[in-house]
Nucleic acid binder design. Structure first.
Length: 108
DNA sequence: AGATTGACTGCAT
DNA sequence: CATGCAGCCAATC
């Protein structure tokens, strides 16, 4: 496998495979990458430099909500981007996984 | 080289 | 039913 690249680089690759208008959870990303836990995905996302075309905003927690990291500024922006993508949010700020959830069993 | 942290998750209370 | 605690492993200081 491509163990040559840092772990987060592989995570970015999986995140880039998420189609627009769809969202997934950290745990599922970790499963697709294999050999890492949800914490690694979260850490990778926090270290993801914006500008590489990485749809990090399509990765949310298993509750279907956006994780309130930092001061919460980026969190609000993330939801705005997802709404632009066509993701539907509930009154609780939760995403409907039955409509916008992307959970492939393995990489295409 | 060692210690700390972190966008999470699942199970227990 | 809601909240708390421990486990996960790599990256950073």
């Amino acid at each position: 496998m491509s163990t040559d690249l840092p772990l987060y680089e592989r995570i970015y690759a999986v995140v880039c495979l998420i189609p627009p208008g769809k969202v997934t959870t950290y745990g599922h990303i970790a499963r697709l990458v294999g050999g890492c836990s949800a914490r690694m995905v979260g850490y990778a996302m926090a270290a993801t430099p914006d500008g590489r075309g990485i749809p990090w905003q399509r990765v949310i927690n298993r509750k279907g909500q956006i994780s309130p990291h930092g001061d919460g500024y980026g969190t609000v922006m993330q939801r705005a981007i997802l709404e632009e993508e066509g993701v539907d949010f509930n009154a609780n700020g939760c995403v409907d996984f039955t409509k916008t959830g992307w959970f492939p069993e393995q990489l295409p």
